[in-house]
């Protein structure tokens, strides 16, 4: 099962996200603020982190930096989930090294799709060339 870490200080959003992800066979971990998030990431090695930016104490960017600097989390993908939706914000987020950036309000479908994309792309990187050839064949086929 793939591990997803949800980081957000809004309990209601977290609840909805947790339910949906669990329903789609993901193992879900929750962090309520940046500090907790870094700790969680180091402990659980999630595959994907859904990360809010505006949080008290340590914000999303700091969490991102910490994760990317951590060698053990090289395979972890980080998706920003923020109410900040200006082009400059998105650019900034991507420049910092995020793998994707979603804006609030979001649709569940979109979140799921994005998470799956990220998992797939990391799968492609990991493993030997045999798998790559396999998946390419698949793509051509569909």
């Amino acid at each position: 099962m793939k591990k997803i870490l949800i980081v957000d200080d809004e309990p209601n959003i977290v609840m909805a996200l947790e339910y949906t992800l669990k329903k789609n066979d993901f193992q879900v971990f929750i962090a309520r603020d940046g500090e907790e998030a870094i700790q969680m990431a180091q402990d659980k090695f999630p595959d994907v982190v859904v990360l809010d930016i505006m949080m008290p104490k340590v914000d999303g960017f700091e969490v991102l930096t910490q994760i990317k600097q951590n060698e053990n989390l090289a395979h972890t993908k980080v998706i920003f989930l923020s109410a900040k939706n200006k082009a400059t914000d998105i650019q900034k987020g991507m420049d910092r090294g995020a793998d994707d950036y979603l804006t609030k309000p979001f649709s569940m479908k979109k979140i799921l799709k994005t998470i799956e994309e990220q998992i797939r792309s990391s799968k492609l990187k990991v493993g030997s060339g045999k798998w790559e050839v396999e998946s390419k064949k698949l793509k051509v086929g569909s």
Binding site: N12, I13, M15, M54, K84, K104, F106, M108
Partner: peptide, 20 residues
């Protein structure tokens, strides 16, 4: 920003309800 947060939550909860 402050307005978007509850809206986001409402939408997410709504989506969950309609699918579940």
């Amino acid at each position: 920003h402050e307005l978007k947060t509850p809206v986001t939550s409402i939408q997410a909860s709504g989506e969950v309800l309609s699918d579940g």
